[in-house]
Amino acid sequence: MNKIKYTDAIIELEELVAEMEKNEIDVDELTKKVKRASELIKICKEKLHFTEEEVTKILKEINT
């Protein structure tokens, strides 16, 4: 799964939204930004429904 943290992803998303709301984006950038936003949205949604922690791994860490 993507390494970006949820908090960082959402901060970047909010920045994109703010930029959009100020209408500061031109059409050339728009495609790029929308693509990035879609990626971030996907990451955030995935994070809500997926976690990669494993109890056994953590237990090993405690005992080392």
């Binding site: 959402i10 998303l13 909010e14 994109l16 939204v17 936003a37 949205i41 955030c44 949604k45 809500l48």
Partner: peptide, 9 residues
């Protein structure tokens, strides 16, 4: 919020 963001975008 993510849904909102998606809609806003």
């Amino acid at each position: 919020r993510i849904q909102d963001v998606e809609n806003i975008l």
